[in-house]
Amino acid sequence: MASLHYVCSLLSILVCLITIAATGPITASPPPVKAAYWPSWAESFPPSAINTNLFTHIYYAFLMPNNVTYKFNIDNSTAIQLSNFTTTLHHKNPPVKTLFSIGGAGADTSIFVDMASHPRSRQAFIHSSIQVARKFGFDGLDLDWEFPQNPKEMHDLGLLLDEWRLALEREAKATCQPPLLFTAAVYFSVDFFVADVYRKYPVGSINRNLDWINAMCFDYHGGWDNTTTGAHAALYDPKSNLSTSYGLKSWKLKDPNSHEIGSPAVDVGPGDKGLMQFVQVGEFNRMNGATVVYDVGSVSTYSFAGATWIGYDDEISATIKVGFAQALGLRGYFFWALSYDDEWKISTQVARAWILND
């Protein structure tokens, strides 16, 4: 009789350390950026619950413009939430800077494509974004366009950033206020292929216009990779360029006795399409007596119990990534997302590690 393989899953979390690259000319060492995105749908985790001792900047995630006017239509409930977000975080001890992020992984990117392709729609979008930031007391704004799909879209992104920065400077001068911070979340690599189409970020425009970029150094592997396990935020990978140094979602294991990175896998598992929060990973490990392994080669952590394999970042791997970021002269780090940590374990360790390495 053929042996039966129990089908369980590899689960990943998105509470991983991400580097923030400093851009533009620097005359003096700027203070480090210790940032995190706050999911606006996290009803059980209000802004008042954020430990601001661990961060310098908090992003509100997410807003999207109208798909016809390219302006932001803020309804009453969202307006209340935005005001509460900035007021709460500005009055915390210590206070933090606030930015709102536009887009996100679930956004309809066709809106960005259409908006960025015409001067008039770009101007409508830019003007509206500045209005929202000032009206609700934000310190800045962030573009999370995931991702421009071809050279034309990358070119239009460059035009958008140029015009956006100019508008920000003009608005600050006209209102005698400090310029709004201006950042973007980008793919972990400056150039990449999607569906055999090569594209490259407009580096010149990014360097001229953005205060920093949030390089999304995760999702290197996932449910689309359902034949082997893999570290979704590997710092190193000698077999490919899918690693933070170059540039986990979930699987179901075929063989419970093969549990290292690269083991055969079958399919995505439980959780939100195979995703779990860091606190849920900790609960799984405790309840199932899971074996936890730190993988030196990729600088990542995984645990396994039976046929279930979980890849994630913990305090050890995050600390090493902080050292890597500082060795490269990067400006800081950010997390996706605030509500996913487990009693601030990773956030606290990373904040301490950056201070110790200064």
Score class of each variant (00 low, 15 high):
Tyr59Ala: 08
Ser77Gln: 13
Asn73Asp: 12
Leu54Gln: 10
Trp38Gln: 00
Ala61Cys: 05
Ser77Gly: 09
Lys71Val: 04
Phe55Ile: 12
Ile74His: 03
Asp75Ala: 08
Thr56Ser: 15
Phe72Ile: 01
Asp75Gly: 08
Ser44Pro: 00
Asn66Lys: 03
Phe45Tyr: 15
Pro39Gly: 06
Asn66Arg: 11
Lys71His: 08
Asn76Asp: 15
Ile58His: 03
Ser77Met: 12
Thr78Trp: 12
Thr56Lys: 04
Phe55Glu: 11
His57Ser: 06
Ile74Gly: 02
Val68Gly: 02
Met64Gly: 02
Pro65Met: 01
Ile80Ala: 14
Ser44His: 14
Leu63Asp: 03
Asn66Gly: 05
Asn67Met: 13
Phe62Val: 06
Ala79Phe: 14
Pro39Met: 15
Ala61His: 06
Ser48Cys: 07
Lys71Glu: 15
Asp75Phe: 05
Trp38Phe: 14
Leu54Trp: 13
Asn66Gln: 11
Ala61Glu: 07
Tyr59Gly: 01
Thr56Ala: 09
Pro47Asp: 09
Trp38Cys: 02
Phe55Trp: 11
Thr52Ile: 08
Ile58Tyr: 05
Tyr59Asn: 11
Trp38Thr: 06
Phe72Asn: 01
Asn51Val: 10
Asn53Val: 08
Ser40Cys: 07
Asn53Phe: 12
Phe55Met: 12
Tyr60Glu: 02
Ser40Asp: 09
Ile80Gln: 13
Asn51Ile: 08
Ile58Arg: 01
Phe72His: 03
Ser44Ala: 15
Asn67Tyr: 11
Thr56Phe: 15
Asn73Ile: 15
Thr52Cys: 04
Asn66Leu: 04
Ser40Glu: 02
Asn76Leu: 14
Asn51Cys: 11
Leu54Pro: 03
Trp38Pro: 00
Phe62Arg: 11
Leu54Met: 14
Asn76Val: 05
Tyr70Ile: 00
Asp75Val: 09
Phe45Cys: 13
Ile80Val: 13
Asn51Arg: 14
Thr69Ser: 13
Trp41Lys: 04
Asn53Cys: 04
His57Arg: 12
Trp38Asp: 00
Glu43Gln: 09
Ile58Met: 06
Tyr70Glu: 04
Asp75Glu: 15
Pro46Glu: 00
Phe45Met: 04
Asn53Asp: 06
Pro46Gln: 07
Ile80Ser: 12
Ser40Ile: 07
Phe45Gly: 06
Asn67Gly: 05
Met64Glu: 07
Asn53His: 07
Asp75Cys: 03
His57Tyr: 11
Thr69Phe: 00
Ile74Asp: 04
Val68Leu: 11
Pro65Arg: 03
Ile74Phe: 07
Val68Glu: 10
Ile80Pro: 06
Asn66Asp: 12
Leu63His: 01
Ser77Ile: 15
Phe45Glu: 02
Leu54Tyr: 10
Tyr70Gln: 00
Leu63Val: 05
Ser77Val: 15
Pro65His: 01
Leu63Met: 08
Ile80Asn: 07
Ala49Ile: 03
Asp75Leu: 15
Thr69Glu: 01
Asn73Thr: 11
Tyr70Thr: 00
Asn53Leu: 13
Phe45Asn: 02
Asp75Met: 12
Ala79Gln: 10
Leu63Trp: 06
Ile80Thr: 14
Pro47Glu: 06
Asn76Tyr: 10
Lys71Ser: 05
Ala49Leu: 01
Tyr59Ser: 15
Ser44Phe: 08
Ser40Gly: 08
Phe55His: 10
Asn66Thr: 05
Ile74Leu: 07
Phe45Leu: 09
Pro47Phe: 13
Thr69Gly: 00
Asp75His: 10
Phe62Trp: 09
